[in-house]
Amino acid sequence: MQKVVEYIQKIYNTTEFIPLHEPRFIGNEKAYLNQCIDSTFVSSVGQYVDTLEQEFAKYTGSKYAVATVNGTSALHISLLLAEVKQDDEVITQPLTFIATCNAISYIGAKPVFVDVDLDTMGLSPKSLKNFLENNCKLINQQCINKTTNKVIRACVPMHTFGHPCKIAEIKEICDNWNIALVEDAAESLGSYYKGRHTGTFGKLGAFSFNGNKIITSGGGGIIVTDDEVLARKAKHLTTTAKVPHLYEYVHDEIAYNYRMPNINAALLVAQMENLEKFLQSKRELADIYKDFFATLQMKFVMEPIESCSNYWLQAILFDNLEQRNQFLEYTNKNGVMTRPIWKLMNELEMFKYCQTENLENAKYLEDRIVNIPSSVRI
C-alpha cells in the first residue's frame, strides 16, 4: 500500500494531499465569464446557453441538447418526457449514484433493480432479459410486472465511471418490451459504445457537469435527444412552462426552474474547448495505472470490449472486502484520496423494499471496487 501511495505521489508530482478528482481551468474560462458578466445576461438566457447546447449536440451526435441546472434535474425531466408517471416502475441498476434513484422517486415511480455486468459495472442485458421474461407480460403494448401489476414504463442504465454498459443490447430488449430507454450518462461524456456516443441510444440521455466531472460548470446538466418535440418540451418544462410573450407572465402547466444560467454555460463552453485534451490525459493516466497495477495484487479496471471509455474515475478491484478496507484506510490517512464504490441502492433504507433480481455481480463489485486519483494531468 505504501508503494501505491508513493507511485501516485510520483504521478502527480506532489507529496501534498491528492484529491480524487479536481477540475482543470486552463483555457478561456475567465475570459468568457467576464464577457458574460459584462453582457449582464448571467441568468437562464444568453448566448453561452445557446452555444453550449449547439456544441454539445454536435459533439455527442445528437440532434438536440437542453441545458439544465444539474444532472439530476436532467434525468428527472427525461423521465417525465418518457411518460413515467406516479406508481409506475422503472428498471435500473443497484450499483449507481443516488441521483439515479432520486430522479425516479421525484415522480412517485419506484425503482426495480436488476444486476450489472462485471466487465462494465453497468446494467446487464442478460439480467434485464431474464427479469422481464420471468416476471413480466405485455398487455395492450404495456409491460406489466406480474408481481406488482404495475406498468414498467422505463429503463435507466448508467455508464459507471464512464465505462459504457452494453447499451445497444439493452435498447433492443427495451424495444421488444415497449419500455422507454433513458440513459443516465452523467459520468460518460466522451465515451462510446460500438462507435456511438453514450446517451444517444435511448429516447433521451442525461449528462452531468458537477464539480468532479470531466468538464464542469460547478453544477449543471444537459438532456440530449433526437426528437424535436421532446427537445422543445424539455426546454419548456425546465423554464417553468412560461408561454413566450413580450411582457405577460403566463404559464400553461406545472413545471420546473431547471434551466442552466448563462454564467455557468460560459464556463462550460470554455471547458468544452479542452475536452479532447482532458480525454487524452485520462487515457494516458489509465495506461500508466494499468502497467503499474499489473505487478501488484489488485486489478486495474480497463474499458470493456467494443467501448471507448473516458476513464472519468479510475478504479481498481481487490480480492475481498478486507483488502479493500485496509487500502481505503491507509491511502486516506496518507494524503491520497480514495473512495469505495457506492453502497447498493437496494441496501439503503428508502429503497430496501424495492423488487430486485439476483444482484450477485453488484454485490461482488460493491465489496471490491475502489476509485483512485483520476484528475487530468496537464
Rank of each mutant, 00 (worst) to 15 (best):
G46E: 04
G46D: 05
Q47Y: 07
Q47I: 13
Y48A: 02
Y48V: 09
D50S: 14
L52G: 06
L52C: 03
E53P: 13
F56R: 02
A57P: 02
K58I: 13
T60W: 11
T60G: 06
Y64I: 10
A65N: 08
A65G: 09
V66H: 02
N70A: 05
G71D: 00
T72K: 15
A74Y: 01
L75C: 03
H76S: 06
L79H: 00
L79T: 02
L79M: 07
L81C: 04
E83R: 12
E83W: 08
V84H: 06
V84M: 05
K85S: 14
K85W: 03
Q86F: 12
Q86I: 12
Q86E: 15
D88S: 09
D88G: 04
T92V: 03
Q93M: 14
P94D: 01
L95Y: 11
I98F: 14
A99R: 13
T100Y: 04
T100V: 15
C101R: 11
N102W: 11
N102R: 14
A103E: 05
I104M: 06
G108E: 03
A109T: 00
A109P: 05
K110D: 05
K110E: 10
V112W: 06
V112Q: 01
V114S: 00
V116F: 04
D117L: 09
D119F: 12
D119M: 11
T120N: 02
M121P: 07
M121W: 11
G122P: 12
L123T: 02
K126H: 12
L128C: 04
L132E: 07
L132V: 09
N134V: 09
L138I: 15
N140L: 10
Q141I: 10
Q142K: 15
T148F: 09
K150F: 08
I152T: 01
I152A: 03
R153Y: 07
R153I: 05
V156F: 00
P157S: 07
H159K: 01
H159N: 05
T160R: 12
T160N: 13
T160D: 06
F161K: 10
G162L: 02
G162T: 08
H163Q: 11
H163G: 00
P164C: 05
P164R: 06
P164N: 09
C165M: 01
K166I: 13
I167G: 03
A168F: 10
I170D: 05
I170W: 00
E172C: 08
C174E: 05
C174P: 07
N176K: 15
N178W: 06
I179P: 06
V182E: 07
E183A: 06
D184N: 13
D184A: 08
A185Q: 03
E187H: 15
E187V: 11
